[in-house]
Design a protein around this nucleic acid. Structure first.
Length: 128
RNA sequence: CCAAGCGGCUGGAUGACCGCUGGCCCGCGGCAGGCCCGCGGGCUGGAGGAAAGUCCGGGCUCCACGGAAGGGCGGUGCCGGCUAACGGCCGGCGGGGCGGGCAACCGCCCUAGGGAAAGUGCCACAGAGAGCAGACCGCCUGCGCCGCGACGCAGGCAAGGGUGAAAGGGUGCGGUAAGAGCGCACCGCGCGACGGGCAACCGAAGCGGCAGGGUAAACCCCACCGGGAGCAAGGCCGAAUAGGGGCGGCAGCGCCAUCAGGCGCAGGGGUCCUUCCGCCCCGCCGCCCGGGUUGGCCGCAUGAGGCGCGCCGCAAGACGCGCCCCAGAGGAAUGGUCAUCCAGGCGGCCGUCAGGCCGCUGGACAGAACCCGGCUUACAGGCCGCUUGGCGCC
RNA sequence: GGACCCGUAGCUCAGUUGGAUAGAGCGUUGCCCUCCGAAGGCAAAGGUCGUGCGUUCGAGUCGCGCCGGGUCCG
């Protein structure tokens, strides 16, 4: 089928998260903050963050699970190619309806990686 | 039936679609093939009673291995039992509280509970006096004074007042100048033959005129226990390589040898300190630099394991038999979206108390990270048992 | 995974061996001063000592259990 790989390629190293936060662009929509960084290679890599300030372990784990499921459904059809994306959970991520969470993610991502944002974003590979 | 207290158990169910992850099997591809790797498919397993806090106890691993004595530090503290062990659990004892009863006594609940007649410290304020006894008001006798009162002096006393958390037994009678265990009775207290109990302890003839205030969650004493670090322990593979380098300090004696060096003794170090012994290893100590701690695998899930039955025990638990295998992630799986049902809550309607129907709402605390045994803390709702009290019925 | 530290007035902090009035500075409020304000002066209010239980005659202080915040090592 056209569902792509079952498991999205993931960001795992702390350095990768720091790079996306420092050099990428970001947009917040409701319960989710999206950071994105243009990358040289093909494909899409995603990382998920839920800080200790968000809540206890059960709250953070659930937040990342909901974000992961939303990302799977949103990115599965048409993954933005050549991007590293970090999804950061904000308060309310576990209380908002799931459709709303998907819409927020879709909106933020469109602003960052859409055609209008391609020119606004600085030279993607021109980092020192 | 209701309420309270105590103890224990449980911690929604079924299904659909889309996903994650461990194991087994099959197919395709990489490969000459197996192993292995990638992709796809099928079957199957996939959070907790607290997974939490990290407060204790262990297993396991490393610190080269082992033994003895002393010290320091830390912990525990009625008795007996259970346990691998514990600061845990069970059963008793002592103490305290509540309830019932005239009482003896009975029931429930709580309990960090060794030693204060080894020593040291502290006991503010008040008060005359606070740990050693003490005299402010006061009581009594004598003298000044023939008598009485007041006052003064000398002496006796500690009953009463007053202070305090606590004032060197309490009440009553006798006794006395006034008093005092000074004497007596009862109560309290200390010692205690003897008896019961494994023990804590219980009972107790008799003796004693009453000594020994409190504080050890103050120091301390006594008894018992404890080496340290932790799965990022530790090991293997890959990669890289060097049992690495620099500076400063200390390296004694003897023998052999041309040198390099070797051997023996001494000395130093080796996971709290000191001393001693066996054995092993190493030049040693301090500071600095470099490498490495970024990958993969093992450890890593058969265990003081669960469930059932029998049997012993008041119990905690022990034993025997049978059956079962029951999570293994790694920015970290066990999820997302719904439907119905079952508890619960709210509102409305019907109805003879019972109850029935409809709609809405709605599921606590919380997420394994090496593994066990406990403790503590969080927790919606439901269930069971015991005790006490109230009401109703027989 | 492990080792610790700190919670006292609105804020920053004192408070020794337990002892009875829990203080200081800034801030707040009121009054004075001034034409008005600032500064200054005078005065006052403001505290479950994070929380619960215990030891003691007596607890901010001692013991235990929790809650919250923070630090360090790997």
């Amino acid at each position: 089928m056209a569902g792509g790989p079952a498991r999205l390629p993931r960001l795992t190293r702390r350095a990768e998260f720091v790079a996306v936060a420092r050099e990428g662009v970001k947009a917040a929509r409701g319960p989710v903050l999206v950071q994105a960084l243009r990358r040289a290679g093909p494909g899409l890599r995603v990382g998920f963050t839920a800080t200790r300030k968000l809540g206890k372990a059960v709250v953070r784990n659930r937040a990342k699970r909901r974000l992961r499921e939303a990302a799977r459904l949103e990115f599965g059809a048409a993954p933005p190619d050549g991007w590293d994306v970090v999804l950061i959970a904000r308060p309310g991520v576990n209380e908002v309806p799931f459709a709303e969470l998907r819409a927020a993610l879709r909106g933020a991502l469109a602003r960052l990686t859409g055609p209008a944002a391609a020119t606004a974003s600085a030279a993607p590979t021109g980092q020192p």
